[in-house]
């Protein structure tokens, strides 16, 4: 059976219902076996796609555990970071974060194709070379990937208005 690892970045378990359960339900609806771990755990995935979840707007505890995600640098099977997960991916690959709050739906420009996406973030990645921006809101990188790697990051929550991005990520063969 195909498997997916979801890493929760949520400090509070009640937030898992909001930020992890929807991801789990999408993966399970596609027939995946889902394992959920917390950001505080040291994990070493060996196979299958990995999704790093988002968390509540006030939650920044995950920023103190970025070292637990060093494995992303070498992982080949595919990683998708969502909001807090996108922050983590940015930091792991040497980028910074700046303050910047976006709450609610915004139009994202996916290389000419505009789609609404739901944001809930207080920090914006400051990308350096080595990233490809796939979707943006003005100068904000909303959806990006590490060049030459199967590592994607969505600053917005694709499970809300863009489920197809999660489905494509899970179903695509790398």
């Amino acid at each position: 059976m195909r498997k997916v690892l979801i890493i929760s970045t949520c400090k509070h378990r009640l937030s898992d219902e909001e930020f992890v359960r929807p991801l789990r339900e999408i993966a399970e609806s596609l027939g995946y076996l889902v394992e959920v771990r917390k950001f505080t755990e040291k994990v070493s995935p060996d196979s299958g796609k990995v999704i790093i979840s988002g968390t509540a707007l006030k939650d920044v505890d995950y920023l103190g555990k970025v070292e637990n995600f060093e494995w992303v640098r070498a992982y080949e099977e595919g990683v998708l970071g969502i909001c807090a997960g996108a922050h983590i991916i940015s930091l792991v690959f040497g980028c910074g974060l700046r303050k910047g709050k976006i709450i609610g739906a915004r139009e994202v420009d996916f290389k000419g194709v505009k789609r609404r996406a739901y944001f809930l973030t207080s920090m914006i990645p400051v990308l350096r070379e080595g990233f490809e921006v796939l979707g943006s809101v003005g100068d904000v990188p909303a959806y990006f990937k590490v060049r030459g790697r199967n590592v994607y990051a969505a600053l917005f929550y694709p499970e809300v208005l863009n489920r197809d991005l999660i489905i494509d990520f899970l179903e695509e063969d790398y």
Binding site: H12, L14, S15, E17, E18, R21, P22, E25, A56, L57, K58, D59, K101, I103, G104, A105, Y118, L120, E159, V160, L161
Partner: peptide, 27 residues
């Protein structure tokens, strides 16, 4: 409802409160 959620999140943020939506996107 993105409309509802957005407004709840904004007000909570303005007041420095945590916002929890445990039924969010529930089937």
């Amino acid at each position: 409802s993105v409309y509802q959620a957005t407004r709840f999140q904004r007000v909570c943020d303005e007041l420095g409160l945590w916002c929890f939506n445990p039924l969010w996107l529930m089937d």
